Every structure is written in structure tokens, then in C-alpha cells.
Simulated scan of single mutants.
Amino acid sequence: MRAAFFREAGKPLEIGTTADPTPAPDDVIIAVQRAGICGSDLHITQYGAAPSGTVLGHEFAGEIVALGSAVQGEWKLGDRVTALPIHACGECDACDKDLRALCSSNVFTGTGLARPGAYAEYVGARASTLQRLPAGVSFEQGAMVEPLAVAHHAVSMARIEKGAAVLVIGAGPIGAAATLFARLAGAGHVVVSERSDVRRQRALEVGATAAIDPVAENLGERFRAITGRAPEVVLECVGMPGLIQEGLAVAGVRARIVVVGVCFEEDRFHPLTGLTKEASIHFSQCYHERDFEAVIGLLASGKADARPLHTQTVGFAELPTAFEALRTAMGQCKVLIDPRG
């Protein structure tokens, strides 16, 4: 099969071929119809956080083409699916609490050689992690379920009350999705802070009540002018040093700051800023299968429209260039890969 390989930091992905995968007893093989490029994939290649030869890609949807010998029951060839890209041990404290994404031994699909990802024609997945795609959910939507689930989980952790004033920092794929789910959760105001005018407009398309350019305006003052109060919930969806402190600084009394952005660098914030407000900081790392189920249900019912987030689809020929362009292409949101394109 064809696949895109990460070789070393600073070098573009390399398109090549490798043997078609065969399923382990508890696995299935999925013919990838669409795969998503994630910001964490960009970080992995920037920092060389995966071994040479890794096939990236943990956001995907496709059809089952092979079943492991132990897979029985509801799954059959041709089923349309996505999957949680999780391979947990099943025995640790996190797994005992049904928090497999937090398993200390977990291996995410597409982050190493043991579990090649979906930048390929085929990808393996544990049958226990599969999620069925209803007829009304396209493969494009199915490939976006994973990042949507990240945002859904973060919004669930935020415990947004009806009518609440919410600040979303960043309007990339996760920030835009968090905006969508915050509105669905009943927030009265969902104000997005974003430097890119294209992304600010996209945030408005998915439900933001207002969008602020934090370079041109004072974020705290402008938020209060729009909503009449300070944020009761802050969703940090960028992952750059300094943004936790920014969220604390603008947040209101007993506000909840949920950190969703993945920061690969050391960061600092002033505890006194949060102490004087009794603010709380929560880190939202991933998701639960219930988040996948909820997102698929919202897509199928039409209550959630993720189409504005999908900005481009590329084939393998375009993939290395498109991947590198995402490091600076602020106008893009979710770029999908068509392995057969």
C-alpha cells in the first residue's frame, strides 16, 4: 500500500510503499477513505517526537476490509467506521476507571512504529474502539469525529451553564469545534479570541457570538464590553506559552479555565492571579468513547454542522507540500487526506 512516512525533523513527509497490514486477533483493518491532519502531527514532526519511518494519522474514517480471528458479533466487512486511536493496557488505574486515553501505557495510532497511522491506504484499529458511522454521516465528517470529540470532551469538562459567558482562545480546528459545542451546551455568549481574520469569520460561522482580534484590542476590556461581564469559562485551544496566564488574567471570579491546546514547551503563570479569583484550571487531554458517540449523534441529527471546518482535501501527491504549508497557513482549518485521490 501507499503511505506517507515521517523520516526526520525539518524534512517533508516521504511518500512510499509498504506491505498491506494484516489484523491481529482483536483488530480490524480499515480501508481509509479520509484522514485528517492534526496539529499534534505537525508538532511531532517539528520536534522529532516519533521514530523515523512512522506513518502518522489518528483521525480517520473508512470501511472494514479485514477482521481479526477473535473479532465476532456486530462487525462485518464493508461496515463504515471510525475509531478511537487508543491502544491502552486495560489493567492500570486509568483503565480501571474507564479512562483509556489516560492510560500510562497507551499508544496512540500514528505516533510510532508499533501502530502505524492513517496517512495510508489502510490502517489497523482495535475492534473494541470502533464507532459505526450512520448512513447520514459522510467519510469527511467521520474523519473529523476524533478532533470534534477532543473539543466535545473539553466543553463537557467546562460544565457550561445555560446563558454563561465563554471565551475561546484560538479558532483553529479545536477552537472552532469548541465554539460549536459551547453554543450547543447553552452558552449565552461564546466570544472567540483569534488573530487571523479568516479564522475569526469561520468561528462566527459555527456559532460564535463575537470574535476579537487580541492584537488590535484589549481582550478583557472588549469581552466585558460585548457580554457585560468577565468570562465564566475560558477554553484555551492554542497551546502556546503565556496563554494559560492570559486566560487567568481575563477570567472572572471562580471561573473555569480548561486547557485543551497542546503546549510542547515549558510555560509559566502567576498563581496569585488565579488565587485572588478562586479560579480553577483543568487540563483536557483527550476524550472518552462517549464523546465519540455524542459527536456522531449530533452530526447524524444535523444539530452539529462541521462542514465549515473542512477547508481542503488532498491526495498523496499534494500531501507533503500541504502538510508543511499548515505550519504557517492560518487560513486553513481541517485538511483531509484522500489516499485514493
Score class of each variant (00 low, 15 high):
167 L>W: 01
282 H>V: 15
264 F>E: 06
217 E>C: 08
253 V>G: 02
189 H>M: 01
225 A>M: 12
174 I>S: 11
162 K>A: 06
197 D>F: 10
202 R>L: 15
276 T>C: 06
258 V>I: 09
177 A>N: 07
160 I>T: 05
183 R>S: 06
234 V>A: 05
251 A>F: 02
200 R>D: 04
278 E>K: 06
187 A>K: 13
170 G>W: 08
162 K>N: 05
174 I>N: 09
246 E>R: 03
272 L>C: 02
191 V>S: 13
199 R>N: 15
282 H>C: 13
274 G>E: 10
186 G>P: 08
272 L>T: 12
280 S>I: 09
282 H>R: 05
282 H>L: 15
218 N>R: 09
268 R>P: 03
163 G>M: 08
275 L>F: 07
191 V>Y: 10
253 V>L: 15
234 V>Y: 06
192 V>C: 10
171 A>M: 07
192 V>Y: 09
228 G>C: 15
207 G>W: 00
224 R>L: 09
222 R>D: 11
283 F>W: 02
248 L>I: 12
267 D>G: 12
220 G>I: 04
215 V>G: 15
187 A>G: 02
196 S>D: 01
233 V>Q: 14
276 T>G: 02
210 A>Y: 05
218 N>L: 02
203 A>T: 13
208 A>I: 00
264 F>S: 12
252 G>Y: 13
218 N>F: 03
235 L>W: 09
240 M>P: 04
212 I>S: 09
261 G>C: 04
210 A>M: 07
263 C>N: 08
282 H>T: 10
272 L>W: 03
228 G>W: 14
177 A>P: 01
164 A>V: 08
203 A>Y: 09
280 S>N: 00
223 F>W: 05
260 V>D: 06
208 A>G: 01
168 V>H: 01
208 A>N: 03
270 H>Q: 14
274 G>M: 05
199 R>F: 02
224 R>C: 11
198 V>P: 00
231 P>H: 08
161 E>L: 11
169 I>T: 13
240 M>W: 07
236 E>G: 11
278 E>H: 11
195 R>L: 15
188 G>I: 03
195 R>D: 00
244 I>V: 12
239 G>A: 08
161 E>I: 00
223 F>T: 08
252 G>D: 12
268 R>H: 07
208 A>K: 04
239 G>F: 04
